[in-house]
């Protein structure tokens, strides 16, 4: 995307976003310094939380993964034993596999359906705000409620399957939660129901941010509407897609409430997820060491996916146009 206009870079009061302190110091002035100092003070809470909560606390938890801690944190070191056991635990392997299947499908389906819904809503339809509200309201529901409601609707003898069968379609089947092979897709439906409205809103906002001139130009060139959306508009919405991706990915890694409410991890261990593995082990299973080893493993994909993105988007110095 285009960088900020040149007139800003040339401005006297070099307060443009993206400038570093170094560049600010090239144009010294008392006000400037005071602002930097105030800004430093103002970001103290953030620094304290970032360092305190997400470095010290996470580090502490990682340390616990090398211990034999049971109900309470204790520093009786046992090396990598917990990790060895972890990767020999069927339930953990199933959890990891589930997270990848669920995660990829959840993100892709939410992005696609969110985009499609946004495009359809962008056609100057009547009752747009009504539709928007309907698509978005599930996001106000907690995941526990989402899980309970969908569990009920997917119940074979009470739910949708029963109703459709009674209507005369005897062979109709919609009870994914009772089949270990497809139970995870039942969870997926509920998760998409809850979250795709938010993606729709983000995408819609993104569409509304596209310059009208683009549309004019594409019409002049005789490019069809759907081609314009797919090949011109979509690539321009990269920031929206990235924001949606982050929000969805956070939900994938943390998915716990939904599983507990909808399937309890079953049938068997078919819908277990890493977060549930961690939480079960640090609570009812009284094995904090193993739980923290699992938690540490969960941080790796987060680091692998998020790390480079954070670095590129926020840490590395910006290119000047």
């Amino acid at each position: 995307m285009e960088e900020k206009g040149a007139q800003i870079n040339d401005s006297e009061l070099n307060s443009e976003v993206g400038k570093t302190v170094e560049s600010a110091e090239k144009k010294p002035g008392r006000k400037r310094k005071r602002i930097s100092f105030s800004a430093l003070i103002a970001s103290m809470p953030m620094m304290l939380v970032a360092v305190g909560l997400f470095v010290i606390c996470v580090g502490y938890s990682i340390l616990l993964s090398f211990t034999k801690s049971r109900s309470f944190p204790r520093f009786n070191w046992i090396g990598l034993d917990q990790y060895e056991r972890l990767w020999n635990t069927e339930r953990w392997l199933v959890s990891v596999e589930n997270m990848f299947i669920y995660g990829v499908l959840f993100v892709v389906i939410c992005l696609v359906s969110g985009f499609v819904m946004a495009v359809f809503l962008d056609q100057k339809v009547r009752f747009e705000s009504g539709f928007r509200t309907l698509f978005l309201y599930p996001y106000a529901m907690s995941l526990v409620v989402t899980g309970l409601v969908w569990q009920w609707m997917m119940e074979p003898s009470l739910g949708i399957q029963n109703v459709i069968q009674k209507l005369g379609w005897a062979g109709f089947e919609f009870a994914p939660l009772v089949d270990p092979e497809i139970a995870i897709y039942g969870v997926l439906v509920a998760a998409v129901w809850q979250a795709s409205g938010l993606v729709m809103v983000l995408m819609l906002a993104g569409l509304r941010g596209i310059d009208m001139d683009i549309w004019k130009a594409s019409r002049v060139d005789g490019i069809s509407t759907w081609r314009t959306y797919l090949f011109i508009i979509l690539p321009m919405m990269r920031p929206v897609i990235v924001t949606s991706l982050v929000l969805l990915a956070v939900g994938v890694v943390r998915v716990y409430d939904l599983i507990v409410a909808q399937t309890g991890g079953g049938p068997g261990i078919a819908t277990e997820m890493p977060a549930k593995f961690v939480i079960d082990h640090i609570t009812v299973r009284n094995n904090v060491g193993l739980g923290m080893a699992a938690a540490t493993m969960m941080l790796l994909p987060v680091l692998a996916v998020i790390g480079p993105w954070i670095y590129r988007e926020y840490v590395s110095p910006r290119k000047r146009s």
Partner: peptide, 16 residues
């Protein structure tokens, strides 16, 4: 620091 904070958005809170 901000990067760390964003990373924190992904940490399941039970971990800490």
């Amino acid at each position: 620091i901000f990067g760390l904070l964003l990373f924190g958005a992904f940490v399941p809170f039970q971990v800490v």
